[in-house]
C-alpha cells in the first residue's frame, strides 16, 4: 500500500493521530502532524512512497507540529521533533514540508552510522550507478533531477549510502530539493517533471521539491554497483568537458566529503578504496543540461557496451 492509496481525509486523520509509517529506502519513518496544510502537500508529494507494514520496525518517530502555548496563535510556526524532543528552531508554518525533509536528513546523518554515508547524488541504469559527490553550488541536485527524467533511476540525492558488507549502494529516493534558479531550469528541461510548490524565503532561499519517479520509489530496496565517480561542476557559459582524473584524487575527494568517514574508520577506508578501484573517475564541467545528459549517456553506454 502506498501513501496515495489512502484517501486524503484518511491520510490527514492518521497523520494527526497515531501517525503514518512511511518507507524511505532502508528507513521507516513514522510521521505525525496536526498541520492541515502540510498534510495535503505531503499527500501529493509522498504519493508513491510505500507505507510500511504495521509490524515493521520504525527507525525514527518524527513530528511536525505547531509549538505549544502562545506560538500556536501568534505568527503560527511549525516545529520538528524527534521522539518528542526538539533541539531545533521552529519554522514558519508554511515551511513545514522542507522543515520535515531537513529534519529527516538530520536523523539519518546523525544516527545511521551502521552505513557509510557519502555526501553524493547517485543514479542507476542497468544495475550500475554513477556517483556524483556533492559540493554546495556545484549543481549535483539539478544534474540528478535532469538524469532521473532521462531514463536513470534515482538512488539518492543527498546520502550515498554504502552497505559495509558488500560495498553496494543502497537507494534512498527522497524528494529532491532544488534551490533558486535551478527550479526553473528543471521546469524548462522537462515540463512534465512534477515539482512541488516553491517555498520562498527559507533559510536556504527559495526551495521546491522534485518528485522522484514512481519506479525509483518502487525499486527503493534494489541496490546498485558503483561504476562511475563523476565530480560535476556547473558553470555559466562553460563548454562541456569530461576529463578522467587520477584515482588517488578521487579517493581524497570522496573521503573528505563523506558524512561519517571518520566514524567508520578502517571500514570506511576499505569501502572507499574498493569503490574508487571499481569506478571510472571523471571531473565534469557543463553549462547546458541537455548536453550534460547526452554526454553522460554516451560515456556510460560505451563504458559497458
Amino acid at each position: 500500500m502506498r501513501v496515495g492509496d489512502l484517501a486524503l481525509r484518511k491520510f490527514k486523520s492518521r497523520l494527526a493521530t497515531e501517525g503514518l509509517q512511511v518507507q524511505f529506502g532502508p528507513f521507516v519513518i513514522r510521521m505525525r502532524s496536526d498541520l492541515a496544510s502540510f498534510a495535503s502537500l505531503a499527500h501529493q508529494l509522498y504519493h508513491h512512497y510505500p507505507l510500511a507494514s504495521a509490524t515493521a520496525m520504525t527507525d525514527f518517530h518524527v513530528q511536525i507540529t505547531r509549538p505549544r502555548w502562545l506560538r500556536r496563535w501568534l505568527r503560527p510556526q511549525s516545529l520538528f521533533t524527534l521522539d518528542g524532543q526538539s533541539p531545533f528552531a521552529p519554522y514558519a508554518v508554511e515551511h513545514a514540508l522542507p522543515a520535515l525533509e531537513w529534519g529527516i536528513n538530520w536523523c539519518i546523518a546523525t544516527r545511521a552510522h551502521h552505513l557509510l554515508m557519502l555526501h553524493a547524488a547517485v543514479v542507476e541504469r542497468d544495475g550500475q550507478a554513477i556517483i556524483f559527490p556533492a559540493w554546495p553550488g556545484h549543481g549535483k541536485s539539478t544534474l540528478c533531477a535532469a538524469l532521473i527524467h532521462s531514463g536513470w533511476r534515482l538512488l539518492s540525492d543527498e546520502f550515498g549510502l554504502v552497505h559495509p558488507e558488500d560495498g553496494k549502494l543502497l537507494p534512498i529516493p527522497r524528494l529532491i530539493p532544488l534551490k533558486n534558479e535551478s527550479i526553473d531550469v528543471i521546469r524548462r528541461f522537462r515540463p512534465g517533471a512534477i515539482i512541488g510548490p516553491s517555498f520562498f524565503n527559507t533559510r536556504k532561499g527559495t526551495v521546491a521539491h522534485v518528485m522522484p519517479s514512481e519506479e525509483s520509489i518502487r525499486r527503493g530496496h534494489e541496490p546498485a554497483e558503483p561504476r562511475w565517480l563523476i565530480f560535476p561542476r556547473w558553470a555559466a557559459e562553460a563548454s562541456l568537458t569530461l576529463k578522467p582524473i587520477p584515482k588517488s584524487e578521487a579517493f581524497l575527494m570522496v573521503a573528505t566529503n563523506a558524512f561519517n568517514y571518520e566514524v567508520l574508520d578502517n571500514t570506511a577506508f576499505h569501502l572507499v578504496t574498493d569503490m574508487v578501484q571499481a569506478c571510472d573517475c571523471y571531473s565534469f564541467r557543463y553549462s547546458n543540461l541537455d548536453e550534460a545528459v547526452t554526454a553522460l549517456n554516451a560515456l556510460t553506454s560505451s563504458g559497458h557496451g
Binding site: 533541539p87 531545533f88 536528513n105 538530520w106
Partner: peptide, 13 residues
Amino acid sequence: GKVDLAKLDLRQQ
C-alpha cells in the same frame, strides 16, 4: 541557541 536545520552542516554532527 536552537539548531537551525536548514543551515546545519550535517557532516559535523
